[in-house]
């Protein structure tokens, strides 16, 4: 379980970008590319280096009230994203 007070940011070698031809957001990094599904893209787009995981969850819950257990999804997403080196989480200083 990630600490919900951590602030996630995209790692500096990664670029999040909309690709019209793939009709999707992709994550670009040295010699690699991941095509993101809709929810992964929404979460990553919310990582602005200001908001905490908890704040991101609240915001996305407001936008998608029909999704159940969004906190858990987001927690799992950041666990995976951190492991893959996409994102890095820091404390508010």
């Amino acid at each position: 379980m990630m600490n919900p007070q951590l602030i996630p940011t995209l790692n500096r070698h990664f670029r999040l970008q909309w690709e019209p031809v793939q009709d999707a957001y992709v994550l670009l990094y040295p010699e690699g590319m991941v095509k993101l599904n809709h929810s992964a893209a929404e979460i990553l787009r919310a990582c602005d280096g200001e908001r905490t995981i908890a704040e991101i969850s609240t915001e996305l819950q407001q936008r998608y009230p029909e999704v159940e257990d969004i906190d858990n999804d987001i927690d799992e997403f950041f666990e995976g994203a951190t492991r893959n080196g996409w994102t890095r989480c820091e404390c508010r200083d």
């Binding site: 970008q17 031809v21 793939q22 992709v26 010699e31 690699g32 590319m33």
Partner: peptide, 8 residues
């Protein structure tokens, strides 16, 4: 324009 995103 064709959709390439990685350029080496």
């Amino acid at each position: 324009a064709m959709g390439a995103a990685q350029l080496g």
